[in-house]
């Protein structure tokens, strides 16, 4: 009895600890006043967000654009890469496999700095293009990881069977390998979108003036004082994220599968 009450208390404390900041944030998004004292319920910050915050929305659409395009690119390259690494043998295969997964454990700040140095050295000035390339790069290892574990479940003899039944190499890819890997491809894509949307460290290194994504933009807004508009935006994003997680549910088993 005692023990179960104790664990229940710990459980609730943990929940409060985890979610209190979010609750505070949500509550203050509906506060009328600009500072931390509660003066009454209001939707004024939402109104401000949707009508008078062009730069936020520009950053928002940048984020979406970057997320979708970099995730699509990373998924395409990563899928083909995973198929190659998994099912075809070539020289240095082991090294390619290791190196391609290295960025997973590399500190983001190092990736960020190295990307910046690379872009400066390459004379690439377009902010959005830089961010797109950077996001594609850091998403690639995740896509590879998800797809390689998905492909691992399938027997190579399925590919041989397709060839045996008359499929040429590209037909095998289009009619067998890709449809079979589709759940993995979708979940890899969704992970890549999420990672890209929430990335801050790397993006802040490579983004230029006028080409920031939402996290970087919010950070720059907050440096000049917390605006409740950010709270309102956070509520909108929270809702959006929850919706996305809900949509992703069927694919969770492929993500967590080892």
């Amino acid at each position: 009895m005692k023990k179960s009450r104790f664990s229940r208390i710990v459980f609730f404390l943990t929940l409060i600890f985890l979610f209190m900041p979010l609750i505070v944030l949500v509550v203050y998004a509906f506060n009328e006043s600009k500072n931390m004292s509660w003066t009454g319920f209001s939707l004024v910050w939402f109104q401000r967000l949707f009508t008078a915050s062009r730069s936020i929305w520009r950053a928002f659409w940048n984020s979406i654009l970057i997320a979708l395009s970099s995730a699509a690119t990373a998924t395409a390259i990563g899928t083909l890469g995973a198929i190659g690494i998994n099912w075809y043998s070539f020289k240095l295969k082991k090294y390619v496999q290791t190196i391609s997964l290295l960025p997973l454990i590399l500190p983001e700040i190092i990736i960020g700095v190295s990307m910046l140095i690379f872009f400066v050295g390459a004379g690439l000035h377009l902010g959005l293009l830089r961010i797109y390339i950077a996001h594609t790069t850091f998403n690639l290892p995740f896509v590879l990881l998800v797809l390689m574990s998905r492909l691992d479940e399938f027997d190579f003899s399925i590919i041989e069977a397709a060839r045996d039944l008359g499929a040429r190499e590209h037909q095998t890819l289009l009619k067998v390998i890709i449809p079979m890997a589709m759940p993995g491809i979708i979940s890899a894509f969704l992970i890549a979108v999420t990672m890209s949307l929430e990335d801050f460290v790397i993006t802040s290194f490579v983004s230029g003036p006028g080409s920031s994504t939402l996290p970087v933009h919010i950070y720059s807004m907050i440096r000049t004082g917390v605006s409740p508009v950010v709270n309102a935006l956070s509520v909108v994003l929270l809702g959006g994220t929850a919706g996305l997680v809900f949509l992703m549910r069927p694919f969770f088993k492929y993500i967590t599968h080892e």
């Binding site: 027997d155 003899s157 399925i158 041989e160 069977a161 397709a162 045996d164 039944l165 079979m180 589709m182």
Partner: peptide, 14 residues
Amino acid sequence: QVNTIFQNYALFPH
């Protein structure tokens, strides 16, 4: 003009 029946069937799961 040769077809194979594989030991583990190798059916297309999808």
